[in-house]
Computed example of a mutant assay.
Amino acid sequence: MRLAPQPTSAQPLRLVVFLVLLGAGVVCSPVISAGCPDRCVCDDQLVVQCAGQHLTTFPVNLPLATRQLIISNNRIAELPPLALNYLSDLVYLDCSNNSLTEISESTFGNLRKLAYLDLSFNTLLRIEDRTFGPLASLVMLRMTDNPGLSEIHSDAFSENEALQVLDVSRNNLTALNITSLIALPALRSVGLSGNPWSCQCDNEDLCLWVHLETFKFQGPVSLLF
């Protein structure tokens, strides 16, 4: 069975992120400032840019008031909870294209203002039930292109009531328990394409949901019987 809903425009999604960041005061032009981690650029609006610097570990000595942190396109293998959770004002975190293999239940324990999180293009294997629990303000979560990601706990998103956009495209998911997703009041866009979905008995709810909520899905979704 192949369902091909109308593709969701990316423009409204970008607008959501822009408005969130604008409200937090983090959309700005980069300038060099004191107290910035090695090989990173910090600006006067609390944005720290460390993308593409061949980093193998999470940057140290980050300004505690950092609002936006971009560590994409490096080789970072771990997000240390102790260092990350000092950044309690963080609203935007881009960890895409690194070497992350797991996210622990304590990784995001103190990031209650975080609105945007990108974990795409890593080597994640599974998502536990409490991984995103503390992220009460999370609006957009991208977790695409993790070729080994085969399991997402049924309660992984149960506490993310602000979540509007979820993208788990191009992973290795064959099944997904949608109980917690159905209950999310703000959810309006879901990306599921590019996974080897198997629409067996334990996946019937997912098949029905895709059929009934076609407007929420980004791109065509193939569910195989």
Rank of each mutant, 00 (worst) to 15 (best):
L13Y: 08
C42D: 00
V16A: 12
Q45M: 09
L21R: 04
A34H: 02
C42A: 08
C42I: 02
G23K: 13
L21V: 01
P63K: 11
L62C: 06
Q45R: 10
F18D: 12
T56Y: 07
C36V: 04
L55Q: 06
G23Y: 13
F18C: 02
C40Q: 10
T57E: 12
V26M: 08
G25S: 10
V31C: 13
F18E: 13
P59S: 12
P59F: 08
L13T: 05
I32R: 14
P63Y: 12
A24Y: 10
Q53N: 09
P30D: 05
A34F: 02
V48Q: 04
L19E: 15
L22V: 02
D43H: 00
G25R: 09
L19A: 13
Q53F: 00
L62G: 06
P59N: 11
V60N: 09
P30Q: 01
V26A: 15
C42V: 05
P37W: 06
D38L: 15
C36T: 08
A24S: 15
H54M: 12
P63R: 07
G23L: 12
V41H: 10
G23M: 09
C42M: 09
V41C: 09
A24P: 00
V48W: 03
F58E: 00
V27A: 10
D44Q: 13
D43I: 06
I32P: 01
R14Y: 06
V48I: 09
F18H: 14
Q49N: 13
F58R: 00
L21H: 05
L21K: 05
C28I: 04
G52L: 06
L15D: 14
H54S: 15
L46E: 13
S29W: 02
L22R: 14
P30N: 10
V16G: 04
Q53K: 13
R39I: 04
Q45L: 08
A34E: 03
V47Y: 02
C50W: 06
A34L: 02
L19Y: 14
G25D: 12
C28P: 01
L55Y: 02
H54T: 02
F18G: 01
R39F: 06
P63E: 08
L21I: 01
L62A: 09
V20C: 11
V60E: 15
T57V: 10
V20I: 03
L13C: 06
Q53D: 03
P63A: 09
Q49D: 14
L19N: 13
Q45F: 11
V41L: 15
Q45G: 04
R39A: 09
S33L: 01
A51S: 09
L22M: 11
R39W: 01
L13N: 05
F18V: 05
P37E: 08
V27E: 12
L15T: 14
C36L: 03
G23W: 11
D38Y: 00
L21C: 07
L46N: 12
V16S: 10
G25K: 08
V41T: 15
V26S: 11
V47P: 03
V26N: 03
G23I: 03
D43C: 08
I32C: 01
L55A: 04
Q53A: 13
G35M: 05
P59G: 07
H54Q: 15
D43N: 14
